[in-house]
């Protein structure tokens, strides 16, 4: 089975809306080359709608496809509608993304939202958008239960063995999020990953 869906490959090989907008109304930049991906979105706003959306992306096939998809989904939408575009919607529209590439779809929506926020700030009409959620558990010094790698920077993934992780709500120990039962305390986990 190919790694990417046909739609992802189509948006990767023939990305829509690549480029820059001279005198853009809003610019959003997310990520940096150090962490692997970087996306810049530029928007033109007319009558509270996104008249033009352009992007530039440094990143993998999924990151480029996500950027292209987001630009296509957002063009023509009102700002409020565009702010409601979620990572899940982008991934779904692309016919799914490999599990370990889901974070690329986060970046796409975030970069678009950052461009809209930038526009609103410039116009002085800004309501601050909610920040993406961050996991607050104590991760310092914690290691992956499967390969002993540090997970502080990569949680909720193990960067080494790619296991999706969560912490047991009962005992707080790090476990694979695919488990339905905590191997440490035996409590029932919701196993969000089991849907697929």
């Amino acid at each position: 089975m190919p790694m990417y869906s046909d739609k992802v490959m189509d948006h990767f090989m023939r990305p829509r809306n690549v480029g820059e907008i001279k005198d853009a109304d809003g610019i959003g930049e997310i990520g940096n080359p150090t962490c692997g991906d970087m996306m810049t979105f530029m928007i033109t706003v007319k009558d509270d709608r996104l008249a033009d959306v352009k992007f530039k992306t440094f990143g993998c096939g999924a990151a480029i496809a996500v950027s292209s998809m987001v630009s296509e989904m957002a063009t023509g939408k009102t700002l409020d509608e565009a702010m409601k575009i979620t990572n899940e919607m982008v991934a779904k529209e692309l016919g799914g993304l490999p599990k370990n590439k889901m974070h690329c779809s986060n970046l796409g929506a975030d970069a678009l939202h950052a461009a809209i926020e930038d526009y609103r700030k410039r116009k002085g009409t800004g309501e601050p958008a909610p920040k993406p959620h961050a996991h607050e558990s104590e991760l310092h010094g914690q290691t992956c239960p499967y390969c002993d790698s540090d997970i502080e920077d990569s949680y909720p993934f193990c960067a080494s063995c790619k296991t999706k992780l969560s912490d047991c709500p009962e005992c707080g120990k790090i476990v694979s999020s695919s488990l339905s039962e905590c191997p440490h305390c035996g409590c029932i986990l919701d196993g969000e990953e089991k849907k697929d």
């Binding site: 692997g36 990143g59 993998c60 096939g61 990151a63 370990n100 590439k101 974070h103 960067a159």
Partner: peptide
């Protein structure tokens, strides 16, 4: 990083 399954 992007080509490794672990994104590392």
């Amino acid at each position: 990083a992007c080509t490794s399954k672990a994104l590392k």
